[in-house]
Nucleic acid binder design. Sequence first.
DNA 1: ACACTAACCTGCAAGC
DNA 2: TGCTTGCAGGTTAGTG
Length: 243
Amino acid sequence: MSVRQASLRWPVTDGIEERVIGQRVVDVTRRAKYLIIKLEKGSILVHLGMSGSLRVVEPKAEWRKHDHIEVSFGNGAVLRYHDPRRFGSWLWSLGDHHQLMHLGPEPLLSEFSGEHLWKRSRGRKIAVKPFIMDNKVVVGVGNIYASEALFRSGIRPDRSAGRVSRKRYDVLAGHIKDVLKAAIDQGGTTLRDFVNSSGEPGYFQQTLSVYGRGGKQCVVCDSVLREIRLGQRSSVFCPTCQR
DNA sequence: ACACTAACCTGCAAGC
DNA sequence: TGCTTGCAGGTTAGTG
C-alpha cells in the first residue's frame, strides 16, 4: 500500500502501509457507507465520502490529480483511491470497528421500520429530517433521499420528530426503503463529479421531485417549493403537500 | 440526554 | 474578464 495524501476526512491511520503488508484479504463487506476490507489480522474501513472512488488501474499507471492511495496485490492488480474533496477515509481497525459501533439499523433490512422510527423519536424535539439523517437512528439516509422520502410521505421536514404519528412513520419508513431501492437501481444520484466504479454517472437525479428544486413548481400540485435550512442542510419541500 | 454549530476540502456557480 | 463568496456532501467534535 502506498499513501500519497494522508489528509482525508480523518488522517489515514498512521503506519497502515506497513500493517497490511503480506496479509490476505479474507472478506469484503459493507456497513452503512463504510466498506470493510477484512484482512487476516484486522480490517481496512474505507469511506468514499462524497467524491471518493476506487478503480483498478494498470500497474504503474500514472497518478492523476486527486489519486491519494493505491494498494498492490500479489496477483499484480492495483487498486487506486481517487477523491477530489477528500471527505472519505481509510482507517485501520483491529476488529472493534470503533466507527461502526453505535450505528442504527440498515434501512433495507426488516429491523428498520415505522415502529423503530416511532420508538426512537418519542420525546425528541429535533426536526424529523435531521432525525432520519442521524446515523444512530438509521444509516444511509443522506440529504437527497431524506428530502425525497419526506415529500413522498407528505411530511414537512421541519416537523418535530416526536410529533409524527406511528402511522405516518410506517409510511415514511416504506418510502425511505423505496427511494433508496430506486436510486440504487438507477445507479445513484449524480451531483457534479460523481461516477460509479465503471466511470458512469448515476441517473436518479432525473427522478428527484424536491431536492435541488427550491422555487420551482411542485410536480404534484404546482405550488412553489420552499427551501429552508435544517442542521446546515438545505431542505426543499412543498408547503401544500407536506404537513 | 439532547440540540445545534463548526469543521474538514475542492470545484463549481453565482454575484460583483 | 477576473475576483470573491457561498454552497454541496457525510460525519463527528465541541459547545450550550
